[in-house]
Amino acid sequence: MRRGNSTGITMTSVGVFILFYIPLLCVAMFSFNANKFGLTWGGFTFDWYAKMFHNEVIMKAAWNTLLLAVVSTLLSTVLGTMLAIGMYRFPWKKKTMGKLDMLLHLPVVTPDIIFAVALVIAFSAIRHFTGLFELGMPSMIVGHVTFQISFVALVVRGRLEMIGHDVEEAAYDLYADHKRVLFKILLPLLKPGIMAGAMLAFTLSLDDFVISFFTAGPKSTTLPLFIYSALKRGVTPEIHALSTIIMILTIVLVLAMQKFTAKNGGEMH
């Protein structure tokens, strides 16, 4: 029964994959199209890729995207890991724990637009009182870190549950002090979880559009924002080339994550 599938199931599934990949393949195909205007085929060319790499605006946006992802990932990995250890390695009261847990899950279940809008208001209030925090890279980093923390903490929590308390208890029995247990036992054991959390945070940052869209300033355009605004202005083949490169990077990232989880036997979701 289990192996035998009806043709209906197979056909639907293949249909779904076609639904996923046909549009993406269209983009990839047109990135090699020599015709600049319209969507008719005019021969094969690599010109758009060359042009794209010489386009200063695109390169700046790529740099911004990377900067945003790296900085926010570093910050959120530290904060998220600390939060996970603090929450799940200390005997909190049940009530406090419930509240902390709710706070942790809040960004995961709130639609990102609400979250982005709330941040915009908060930033404007901070700007009003302190004159700091013009919308731009810092505000985007803050926005990204805020939702990444939760995901990092949840992944690290999974790892904490997996490793259990035994090794730590043994270390305490042998008169290791708190610092030693943390740096020599807990953190090395947590490393795969922390890495997985960081990778997830990085991908989430690259993937984000809504929060960047609301919190970006005029000079901090990222690639998704650039593509979105380019669509409003009219599409150029450079956009196809850019999208294709981002898709390839995504595929590489997905494969890397899969390899990583397979090696460490952890869950990513």
Binding site: L79, M82, L83, F90, P107, V117, A118, A125, I149
Partner: peptide
């Protein structure tokens, strides 16, 4: 110790998540 672990992340979420939602 527990507080020192939790508070940075907690304060961050409080300032940039809970208070903004209340402001909303």
């Amino acid at each position: 110790r527990a507080f020192s672990f939790v508070s940075p992340g907690f304060l961050w979420s409080l300032i940039f998540l809970v208070i903004p939602c209340l402001a909303l």
